[in-house]
Amino acid sequence: MASPLWLGVYGVLCLELILTLILLVPLPERVEKGMVKILQLPNFISGWTFFVRFLAIALVLAVYDSIRTIKYMESKILDDPETLTGVMANSLDRERRFRAQRNLYLAGFALTLLFVIIRLVQMIRSNINLREELKAISSQQSSTAPSAANQTTAGTARRRN
């Protein structure tokens, strides 16, 4: 039976994979804006920060635990005697080592995806802000251009008079 800790890590990984998939797909601007608005809410930010920190610490501990187990199992495999019981123990140790390696990749993948999601959200947010800034500048330009044209026509009209 799988341990609840690694089942939890597996659940987190699945959740992160879904989130990453959503962020990887180039969504329409309206949806992205809505997402960023939700992420910029103060209550959400405080809850999100706490959750991310907790997850990061837990996953780092899981990675550390897996590495320690792998090292311990590797040293044990080398020390096993070449008797029948030794061979059986060796097989069990190899099983545990593969399990620890699997857990290492599981926790490492989840930890990496956590940082990837944070970075993707940051980049999408900055992208939206830059687009809005560009829109504001272009609208400012379009509003100043007619006034400049009006002034030139007024100048030519005076010259004619």
Binding site: R94, F98, R99, Q101, R102, Y105, F109
Partner: peptide, 11 residues
Amino acid sequence: QRIFRAERNLY
């Protein structure tokens, strides 16, 4: 043992 190995490779 083989299952854990295959799972590791999958990840």
